Simulated scan of single mutants.
Amino acid sequence: MSETAASPARTDGLAAQPPLLEVKGLQKFFPITRGFLQRVVGHVRAVDGVDFTLAEGETLGLVGESGCGKTTASRCILRAIDPTGGSILYRTREGRTVDLATLAPRELLPLRAEIQMIFQDPFGSLNPRMNLLDNVGEPLLVNGMGNRRERADRVAELLRLVGLRPEFMHRFPHAFSGGQRQRIGIARALATNPRLVVADEPVSALDVSIQAQVLNLLLELQTRLKLTFLFVAHDLSVVRHISDRIAVMYVGQLVELAKTDALFRRPQHPYTSALMRAVPAADPRVRSGDGILGGEVPSPAAPPQGCYFNPRCRHAQARCRVEAPALREIAPGHFSRCHFAGEMEF
Results as ranks from 00 to 15, higher is better:
Gly178Phe: 05
Ala189Leu: 11
Pro173Ser: 03
Arg165Tyr: 04
Phe168Trp: 07
Val197Met: 13
Arg195Gly: 14
Val203Gly: 09
Asp207His: 03
Arg183Pro: 00
Arg195Val: 14
Leu161Glu: 14
Pro173Cys: 01
Leu159His: 12
His174Leu: 07
Ala212Cys: 10
Ser177Gln: 05
Gly185Asp: 00
Arg154Ser: 02
Val198Asp: 09
Leu190Asn: 11
Gly163Thr: 07
Met169Glu: 04
Ser177Tyr: 03
Arg165Ser: 15
Leu164Tyr: 10
Leu158Ile: 02
Arg160Tyr: 00
Arg188Ile: 00
Leu161His: 04
Ala191Cys: 06
Phe172Val: 00
Val208Glu: 03
Arg160Gln: 15
Leu164Cys: 11
Phe172Lys: 12
Val203Ala: 09
Gln180Trp: 12
His170Phe: 11
Leu190His: 10
Leu190Ile: 04
Val162Phe: 12
Leu164Arg: 15
Ala205Gly: 07
Gly179Asn: 02
Leu190Asp: 09
Val198Gly: 08
Ile210Leu: 01
Leu206Ile: 10
Ile210Ser: 02
Gly178Ser: 07
Ala156Gln: 05
Val155Cys: 06
Ala191Arg: 08
Leu196His: 08
Leu159Ile: 07
Arg195Lys: 15
Gly179Tyr: 03
His174Met: 08
His170Ser: 13
Met169Trp: 04
Arg160Met: 11
Gly185Cys: 13
Ile184Met: 08
Asp207Ile: 02
Pro173Tyr: 04
Arg195Thr: 15
Phe176Lys: 06
Arg160Thr: 14
Met169Thr: 02
Gln213Val: 07
Gln213Arg: 14
Arg171Asp: 01
Glu201Leu: 08
Gly185Pro: 04
Asp200Tyr: 13
Arg188Phe: 00
Ile184Arg: 12
Ile210Arg: 01
Glu157Ala: 15
Ala189Gln: 11
Val198Ser: 12
Ala191Asn: 06
Ser177Ala: 07
Leu164Phe: 10
Ala189Met: 11
Pro194Tyr: 06
Ala187Trp: 05
Pro202Gly: 12
His170Ile: 00
Gly178Leu: 06
Ala189Phe: 10
Arg171Ile: 00
Pro202His: 13
